[in-house]
Write a protein that binds this DNA or RNA. Sequence first.
DNA 1: ATCGCTCATGAAATCAATTTCATTAGCATA
DNA 2: TATGCTAATGAAATTGATTTCATGAGCGAT
Lengths: 346, 346
Amino acid sequence: MKQVTVYDIAKEAKVSVATVSRVLNDTAPVRASTREKVEAIMQKYQFQPNANARSLLKKETGIIGVILPDITNPFFPEVFSGAEQEGREFGHTFFLCNTIGLHDKESEFLTMMQEKRVDGIIFMGGRINLKDCKPALIQEVVEHAQKIPLVLVNGNLKDSGLTRVITDEYAGTVLAVKHLIDIGHTKIGFIGGESHMSTTAVKIRAYKKTIKDAGLQLHEEWILPGSFSVDSGREQMEALLKLTDKPTAVCCVNDFTAIGAIKAAVEQGLRVPDDISIVGFDDIPLAHHVIPELTTVSQQANSLGRTAVRVLRELMSKEKVKKVYSLEPELVIRQSTAPVTDGYKI
Amino acid sequence: MKQVTVYDIAKEAKVSVATVSRVLNDTAPVRASTREKVEAIMQKYQFQPNANARSLLKKETGIIGVILPDITNPFFPEVFSGAEQEGREFGHTFFLCNTIGLHDKESEFLTMMQEKRVDGIIFMGGRINLKDCKPALIQEVVEHAQKIPLVLVNGNLKDSGLTRVITDEYAGTVLAVKHLIDIGHTKIGFIGGESHMSTTAVKIRAYKKTIKDAGLQLHEEWILPGSFSVDSGREQMEALLKLTDKPTAVCCVNDFTAIGAIKAAVEQGLRVPDDISIVGFDDIPLAHHVIPELTTVSQQANSLGRTAVRVLRELMSKEKVKKVYSLEPELVIRQSTAPVTDGYKI
DNA sequence: ATCGCTCATGAAATCAATTTCATTAGCATA
DNA sequence: TATGCTAATGAAATTGATTTCATGAGCGAT
């Protein structure tokens, strides 16, 4: 069954396609009787105008492309959701591309979005955040950004000149470590992500600064790398607990790591938070479903998405925008942290 | 900066647009020297063909639309991911639409996808699965399906004539309940979702049948409704534990509910699984991150997505397809279930 | 020399909308 | 009555690709 076009409608209504278009878009006055006639026929055939044809002419698609590393990581659906909420009232539709494990797909997706002529791109890079990210990729992203409005979310590319929306990870980490210090901890460890990720570097810097500012001793052996995963949190926590001089609190690079750390501690017979305090980062929905509920730093993922779309829309309308929009994270105190006790069991 | 078109390329290369198109798509022989000349110019201007123009003519967009209730529910990203993996090698791109809390958006999204002329639609309905779903909505989905290939994922619309990919929830529930019986439980409860959801109805039917087939007594007061959420699992578990005659095992409608149930039990001082066994449904990634790790029925969300795309592609190529593709769920035994002990503490 | 074939290419039509420009009718004003 | 204005409409151009049809060149066979 062939799709109905404006020509079919026009023919049956004995008017020109221009008139049909006017009825469709209310772009010029049409006599009431004509309008009704045309509308009736559109109704009859369940006419749906072809958005491709329209986009071709208008040079806008209403589509926003989103590129992110892994949609199964609960942080990203949250961001996406925020973006969608913000975009909905303006009629935006979203392409979603997962680069999961396929870092080299990033440029392929960028090209695809160019070809589809999306109105804007939200880029949450995986690879682009590597400390040793190839300048070529950065260059490529920058070039795409010159053709299509693009905002980088949580990307740490300082001198790329790209518009960025980020959480202040430094400030967030300070919040977490300060909280542990405030409730009396003096022996605080840190489990990070891959050491070549800039996120890890930023957070470790914040951690060290806060420890030093509080006049505490810095123990390099309490600072361990990881991989942002539950398993890495578990492994590294086991390592920490094998030390003779153990920390009484651990700050983790993200919630997954913290959940793994809790698991390891519990498996060793420790009670969280009675024997050891653990704090995460991100505040994924799961954080208040685990036992004990996780004290963590909220990234406000939803706002991140909303802001990204807001900024993107400003870019699209050629407004001048700031280079960086930084969202302040918040500490969410739940059950996995508590004041130090003397009776550290092991 | 104006976008470069085939005409610009053709002009500069002193050939016709037809030749440029041939170089682009390798659709007819072109002299090597001509090809090189054209390619060099395309390279020079970073030419990206306009996919909208192409789609207009070819009547295909390579886009698959996905409509789902809530991307922040970890089950759905998993399905989406599977779909994306399957679609990737055929060059499909994905629209993602969240109907979260906006059930009336479902038809709006369907219309939008029609207008964008997507090649196919994967529909994971929220509202469409209500037992009292308005016939009008069903009718609408069916009508859309006549124009654009559409598969319903986990939709329980038996007589709609729509192509469906589903998990066999009945069989999965039987698996879960049998497992509890096998390890010695005779007093088994069930916490469901909203009672007007067909999922709930199917699972309760399976639960009852399995209990009866094993010759066990059916206790209606052990069968409670819920809302698929962590909180509802917690509340309903509290209710079960207030009974004088309590179950020693509880089967839950999904993992969220099970996680809530575990929380409630732990808060009441019970040990899971020593004092009470709990089994979930879905096997969300989180299931092996909670403490204790959750015994659950795996929906194989990823395969669900992959299969949906596979079936959709068959539909697109006008192949005849079966009406229903049913995936067999699997029982995943972890730590939240164990044989009954006499020493039920409370 | 002529026929038939393949290779390489171009002109023009096509897809389904929007938009510009022109035209007509009807009415008020000078 | 002539002029000017607005409302309503249509014809045709436009958007950026693909595709069909036509044409010419080059080459081998007869």
